[in-house]
Design a protein around this nucleic acid. Structure first.
Lengths: 117, 117
DNA sequence: CCAGGAACCATGCAATGCAAGATAGCTGCG
DNA sequence: CGCAGCTATCTTGCATTGCATGGTTCCTGG
C-alpha cells in the first residue's frame, strides 16, 4: 500500500532478469540461493525461487551456463553456475541492446511534444 | 542475424509498450495506425497491428482510455483514443517506477564487482 | 529418531507480444 | 456500376517467461 510510486510491474522483468543473472555470473560462480539474494539486494529485482530455478534450468539447457555440484560447508550440496562463452556473448549482446531500449523508453516518457533537441 | 548489437529481444517490450502508448496519448487523441507509426519512429519500439490492437482493446476495457469513432477525410473511420484520469494516473505511476527499474538494470550491467561509483 | 532449516526442483497459471488472417469502408478507374 | 487497392480495425492462436505452490533431499542439533 501506498507504494504506488515504487511498484514495478512484474512484466517489466520479463527478459531482463535472465540477463541480470548472466551479469551476476561475471563476478564468478554463484549458486541458486546466492543469486536470489544478490538480485533481491536491489529491491525492484526481488524475486522468488519459483522464478530463478526454472530460469537457471533454461540457461543451462540453452548452454549459456555450466553447472557444477559442490559440497556445502554446512547443508545440502550447492549447484554452482558459471558463464559459458555463449553465455558471455549473450550478455555482451544484451549490454549493447539495453541502452537503445532504455533511451527509447525515456524518450517516450520525457518527450511529450517531441520538442527538445 | 549479424544484428546482434542492435537487436532488442521482444520480451523487453513486455509491460513497457503499454505505457509508451499511454505516454503518446498525452499529446492528444491518436488512432491505431497513427500510434503504430509513432512507436515505429523509434526503431526499437517497432511493432505490429497484431500487438497494438489487442493492447488498445485492453486499455479500453480497463478504463485507461476512452474511444471515439471519427470519420476520416479519406478512408474508413478511425477510432481515436484519449487518456482517462485513470490512464493518466497509471502513466504517472509508471513514470515514477521506471527510473528505479532502469537504474537497477544499469547497476547489474555496469557494476561487475559491486565497486560502485 | 525427530524437528528445522538450507538448497534444489517441477508443475500449472497468467500476462503479453506477435504472426497471420478476416472484415469493412473509401477512392479511382474503366 | 463493378473492381482493385489502400486504409483501418479487429480476432485467433501461439510462444515466452515471471510467479505461486508444493515437494524432496541433505545437514545439524537435541
Amino acid at each position: 500500500m501506498s507504494e504506488a510510486g515504487g511498484r514495478v510491474p512484474s512484466q517489466l522483468r520479463k527478459g531482463v532478469l535472465e540477463h541480470c543473472v548472466l551479469a551476476l555470473l561475471r563476478n564468478g560462480p554463484r549458486y541458486g540461493v546466492e543469486i536470489l539474494a544478490e538480485l533481491s539486494a536491489v529491491s525492484v529485482m526481488t524475486t522468488s525461487q519459483g522464478t530463478i530455478y526454472p530460469l537457471l534450468s533454461r540457461l543451462r539447457r540453452e548452454g549459456l551456463v555450466d553447472t557444477e555440484l559442490r559440497e556445502s560447508p554446512s547443508g545440502p550440496p550447492r549447484r554452482y553456475y558459471t558463464l559459458t562463452p555463449v553465455g558471455r556473448a549473450t550478455l555482451t549482446e544484451f549490454t549493447q541492446a539495453w541502452p537503445l531500449f532504455r533511451d527509447a523508453v525515456d524518450h517516450f516518457l520525457n518527450d511529450p511534444q517531441g520538442e527538445s533537441a
